[in-house]
């Protein structure tokens, strides 16, 4: 099956989730307000209230986006190289993406309900997951690319085939 079909399904899911977000009642508080004391700064309003109506659709929206990233990556690999090791590597990356996202979202929910803060490398834990976690999960894609370059990105056979194509150019360039 072409990977475009699952991509289309995830796009449809994104549209549905976006519509669900859009039609939710407006939160009882504005998202943010000018800082009461300092011009030029904004302050966020009540975190629980502004998430109340959209928490689950928003969580699902991002989860669907991350699945879309992974499917798009699969689209970039020729069908004949979408082997079991490739899919396993990509599945591990997808799990890492979703794990990081769940730590961000659930960590924030935990803070909103308890007020507890733990710092990780200078930032409150959920924010640290944004900074370090998203970067790290992007590096998983990088690692897969570098390690799999000659296995499913640009094999020696691909290189030879491209060289043949170049040699066949009319003026022999």
């Amino acid at each position: 099956m072409s990977v475009v079909i699952p991509i289309l399904l995830v796009l449809a899911l994104l549209w549905v989730l976006l519509a669900v977000v859009a039609v939710q009642p407006e939160p009882s508080v504005p998202n943010s307000l000018p800082h009461p004391d300092i011009d030029g700064m904004m302050a966020g309003s009540d975190g629980l209230a502004r998430l109340a109506e959209i928490d689950l659709p928003a969580f699902s929206l991002q989860a669907a986006t991350l699945i879309l990233v992974v499917l798009m990556i699969a689209l970039g690999v020729s069908r004949r190289y979408r082997t079991l090791p490739f899919w396993l590597g990509l599945a591990a990356t997808a799990i890492l993406f979703l794990f990081v996202w769940s730590r961000i979202f659930l960590g924030h929910q935990h803070f909103l309900s308890t007020g507890e803060v733990h710092y990780v490398l200078g930032f409150p834990a959920p924010t640290a997951w944004v900074g370090y976690g998203i970067w790290a999960s992007g590096l998983a894609l990088l690692l897969l690319y570098v390690l799999g370059f000659r296995k499913f990105i640009y094999t020696h056979e691909d290189e030879a085939e491209f060289e043949r194509l170049v040699q066949e150019l009319p003026d022999g360039e």
Partner: peptide, 13 residues
Amino acid sequence: SEAMMPFGTAGII
């Protein structure tokens, strides 16, 4: 607190 939490003042969406 929201300014330092993961979605900042701009909000999750």
